[in-house]
Each structure stands twice: as structure tokens, then as C-alpha cells.
Computed example of a mutant assay.
Amino acid sequence: MILIAESGSTKTEWVLVEQKDLIQQSSTEGINPLIQTRREISRSIRLNLPSVFFKRRLKKVYYYGMGCTSAKEKDKVMISFTAQFKSPVQIESNILAAAHGLFKNKTGIACILDTESASCFYDGKTIVKSVRSAGYILGNEGSSATLGRIFLSDVLKGLSPQRLTKDFYEQFHMKDDDIIQSVYYHSSPPDSFLDSVSNFLTGYTDDDYVFNLLVNNLRNFFIRSILQYDYKNYPVRFVGSAAYNWSNTLRDVARRFGVNIDLIEKSSMNGLIEYYAQNMNEQ
């Protein structure tokens, strides 16, 4: 039996798998070694994950997570996971989870549009090229957090429609100073807050202002990420809640750039289960 876990900014998915059969699944808060200590990661796992995940004899734990790109951050997660599960652990980035889940052993361009955004060219075994995401301040184009950030900027500058601004303040029970506090001075990163603002906007996509915000956000992802790959000769696939929820608009924007998206998935997990079922003898 193996344990597969995949984590973004706001959520971690966990599954226990025997061969290709799903035995148990759960969802907990996101894990990010860039902002969490080893002790905080261990505490999050132990307090939030059902006890059945600690009682099974595991052949190996495969974890894919945000922030797991450097040896330092991988080691931090490795120590936490090894202590909790008492089993061999392999740590990889969440963009590799997207590549494994979307393409298995085939070649293509894998993209994440969720709270964060990311992309890579995958040759069926490894990531050959990846455009740096650069985070919600310097990058993350196309993500739900970026859409929320752009809207909040317009709210504070008086550029958003009056009715939409009024609805936002009423739903979030906020004033201008509260927005600044939530984005810059909150004890935790603003990703979750920005994502919740994006979710608010999904109820207004028939509004020209919101639709144009969404389209321009997606256009920036193609301009600053996808166009740096050989997208005319390889398939392009997306995973993530934002990609899934905005799939029609995402496909329309892609076509304007001559990009054909042949698959959009909400989560990498089903693909990861299939990937390990196909490659278990090599692991």
C-alpha cells in the first residue's frame, strides 16, 4: 500500500492506494515549507489527518507540494513526514504532480491554475523546462489569488463598479483598512483570502467588468508562461480548481493564442493514482 499526498496553498489531498484501488481519502489544510516550520507541518498532519492513515503499513509515501523545489524545503518536509508515517518518503513539487497526473509517461506542457499558477514542459519522465511562477506578488498570473488581488486593487482605487463594490463589502463585512490588513499584515499569507475574493467574483462573470478581469488574467498567463514553450507541437493540459471552474473562458482565451487545450482536470489525484499503478514496478 502507498500513500499519495498533493498540496497547494489552501488544501492537501491524501489517498491510500493498493495497486490501483483507492482505499481511503481525506482532505486537510495546505502545507507550505516556505512559511511553515518542521514542527508546524508535523502538527498539521497529526491533528488533521484521520488516524487510519497512520495505522496502515505503507510501502512508501509520495508527497507533492507547493514550495518543494529546493533541497532545504524538501528536507524539512521529508523529516516531518518520516516522523509521522515511519515509512520511506519521496518529496516532489506540485508542478511534477500536475505533469504525472495529466500526462503519465507521455510528453506535454502541464499547467496549474488554482490559488497559485505554474507550468512546465514534461518529457514523460522529468521536467525539462519550467517558467518560474514567482509567487502572488511577482507572478502567479492566471491564478485565482491574482484575480482576487487585481479586483481588490480596483476596489481600493475606486475603479470597480459601484454595485459590485457594495456587494463585496457587505458579503465580506470589510472596510478599506480591513483589506489592507488582510493582505499585508495578517499572520498568515493572503492566498486564502485572495482565493475567497476570486470565488466571490465567480457569481458575477456575466458582468462585463468581471469577465474582462478574468480574460485579462488568463491572457497574462499565456503571454508570460505558455508562449515560452513549444505549444504548437505538444499537447497543453491544465489542472486546478480555477482552470476547471473557468474552463470555457480558458479554452476561448487559449484559442486566441493558437493553443489547443485537450484536457482540463480539477485535481491531479486520479491521474496520480493511475500513474503509480502503471509505474509501480519502477518505484
Rank of each mutant, 00 (worst) to 15 (best):
Q171N: 15
F172W: 08
D177H: 13
G158Y: 11
E141W: 06
Y122G: 00
Q171T: 11
L138C: 12
A134H: 14
G139F: 01
C120I: 02
V128C: 11
D195T: 09
F103L: 08
Q181E: 14
S187D: 06
P190K: 07
R149C: 10
E116H: 10
E170C: 00
D195N: 14
S133P: 08
I150E: 02
I127K: 14
F172R: 02
G139W: 07
L113E: 00
K125Q: 11
L113P: 00
T146V: 08
Y184M: 09
S144L: 05
F151M: 09
I150R: 07
I179T: 04
G148Q: 03
A118F: 01
D191Q: 05
K157H: 09
K175T: 15
Q162M: 01
S144F: 06
S182Q: 10
S192V: 09
T107P: 03
F121H: 07
Y184G: 06
G142D: 11
V128G: 04
S133I: 04
S188A: 13
I150G: 02
S153I: 07
T107K: 15
G135P: 08
R163C: 07
T165H: 03
F168Y: 12
F151W: 09
S182D: 04
K104E: 06
E170N: 12
L156A: 12
D191S: 12
I127F: 13
R132D: 14
D178W: 08
I112P: 07
I150Y: 09
